[in-house]
Nucleic acid binder design. Structure first.
Lengths: 209, 209, 209, 209
DNA sequence: AATGAATGAGTTTTCATTCAT
DNA sequence: AATGAATGAAAACTCATTCAT
């Protein structure tokens, strides 16, 4: 029987996690110290280790929580699109929006999680799959509805789309220049859609190579 | 007059740089120690600081040297393509090839240099510009020759292309699965070309590959 | 609530301070290493930094503690003198005694603290003021009682007295020759008193000792 | 037979010495590097070691050269005084003047040379003796001429005088406040003279204790 | 459960000094 | 005689992690 309630424990854990998100995103993984996170969470250094194995696991947990919120948001947003093109555009725009709003955590994600060698099979990867699954479903639906050329490889679409979003977002992160999510999202999605749209009767085209 | 020849000095510098490239790409910036790099280069710890201001500058120098080799290679390869589509495909394939061959250095570049706040305006950024200039020129030429739709925004093409390459390559880095640069390059380039090709009246579009 | 008692913490701090006093006064500031001080105090290197910001602050703290003891002693001793001349002599003798007993710390004080540019305004300077205040009060009282010529500048007295004490003591430090605090104190004080005593009409002056 | 003339060697040595004086007095012993001194002197690092055993010896040599100039100056100045009181005053004023003009070197002297354990018997000590000899001679002459009380201990006069000068000068060094050498010199010397003046017939005095 | 005192490993950087040329 | 490349030792300081209380 726990001396403090499960609910209280959940609160403690959450406040540490929230503090970690804040401190990590401001200072980066290496520069953030457990002591500072503990102070920000209003707990002692030692207690952090009751809830998280070590500093790295704390980072991963914080990013996972963030990632879950992002995906929930993404799935909801995409639902709003009616056509294939709409949904693709919404996906890009929402994705970009996350980068703009949570720049610090996104930077952390790219610079720290991606480098980690324990990446394959981790909780993060599961979320990654779920994230990309959203896109893959959109493409599959598009193919079924005749909005997408049937020979389209959805994985290449995924690489183009997520790659471009990150590339743009990263520039935003490093240059600190504002980005126009709306316009850019429209352009990126538009270019991809144009490329995978079924042949229009009034146009002729030869294979590229 | 110098006690040892300029050539000898150049050699020393080069061997330190080569050792740094090796050690940094294996262990990452933070985990690599100057002592290990010096040992790998066969020099004393102190000598490293005769040639490089500090650890970070050593990293930047190593990555710059690498980047220069990559760009030289890229520019040569792209020249071989005759049509717009050819050149775009070669660009993607070469780019992917670099990631596959020098995974460690590419990872280093993305995780360490990009995160740096001093990134804008640095020597690296100059090379970055040169790198992307190759693509922008290809697109501009394509527009002039009528191979590319005139309303195409070359910057969005750049984001799609480089983003996708990095995304694919990164998966290679983390999953350690081999990638087929040839096929993937053809697919990515093909999808972009399809999207930005000008519509030709009264023609039928065929799949690219 | 603290895991170890406040008393225990005070002990830790004190033992570090005592060890620092010993090591610093033997080797000087620069030559003493934190590791050696920690070893002498029976604690780990890191703990030193829990109690003291950095090496310099440790030095200042050690000297401040020493200085406080010295001043307490000085103030008590001076109280024992009944006349102006007595008090002045006691001041010089006590002052010399401190130099003789704690040669190392005095050397440290002069060579390290005085050179420091942060000296003005520091905690040490406050003690310095308190130290000299003892003398200034003696002189002022002497003037009020008619034992000291009224046009005497107490600051010059201070410079003569403390300067001479330090000069004598320094010779003791460097030559390692014993000094006779009693006799020397009498001589120095006597010479100063002779100079600032008001001329008494129709009297004959005798030698002080 | 030297390849370069003795004169040339002397020049080299002097320029190193001059550079060392400048750099040492600006940065202090520890912070000054041989490389910087060599650069300032326009010679290579290695050459410094042809003329001076090591860094410390270079410091001692620089201070010795400085000290010699100071003493020469002092001896000349003191000659200008006609009476005992005049000469004593000139001594103090000149001494203070040196501190004001060459603050850096004086600080260096006090903080570095005095601390040195090799001080007794060193070249510096010889100069020290010569320095104090100037004063002792003045006092002896004063006694012979009846200007100074015969039972005066010249060594105590020395301690009072040099001690006070240094004490005042050191305050100047650390507080960076200007000092009025003229007035202060007059006060210090005056107070000492008053104390050691032969008994004036119209004054009576008792022993202090 | 919670604390926070205590640990101690780990690393960049500097620079006096040497010595091959 | 002169150079300056090369050495390598040395040390302050931080902080993740542990564990007695």
């Amino acid at each position: 029987m726990p001396v403090i309630s499960t609910e209280r424990m959940r609160d403690r854990r959450d406040s540490i996690l929230a503090a970690a998100s804040r401190v990590f995103s401001q200072k980066g993984f290496q520069a953030a110290s457990i002591a500072e996170i503990a102070r920000a969470a209003g707990v002692s250094d030692g207690l952090v280790y009751k809830y998280f194995e070590n500093k790295r696991e704390l980072l991963i947990s914080a990013l996972t929580a963030f990632y879950e919120r992002v995906i929930d948001d993404l799935e909801q947003q995409v639902e709003l699109g009616e056509t294939f093109a709409d949904r693709l555009r919404l996906l890009v725009q929402t994705h970009l929006g996350v980068f703009v709003r949570d720049t610090g955590l996104c930077r952390l994600f790219i610079s720290e999680v991606r480098v980690a060698t324990d990446y394959p099979g981790s909780a993060i990867q599961v979320l990654n799959k779920r994230y990309t699954a959203v896109l893959l479903r959109i493409v599959h639906d598009g193919i079924r509805n005749g909005e997408v050329r049937p020979d389209t490889d959805p994985r290449v679409v995924r690489d183009l789309l997520f790659g471009a979003v990150e590339h743009v977002a990263w520039r935003h992160v490093t240059t600190r220049k504002a980005i126009d999510c709306d316009r850019l999202g429209r352009q990126i999605a538009g270019m991809i859609v144009g490329g995978i749209a079924p042949p229009r009767p009034a146009a002729r085209r030869r294979a590229a190579s």
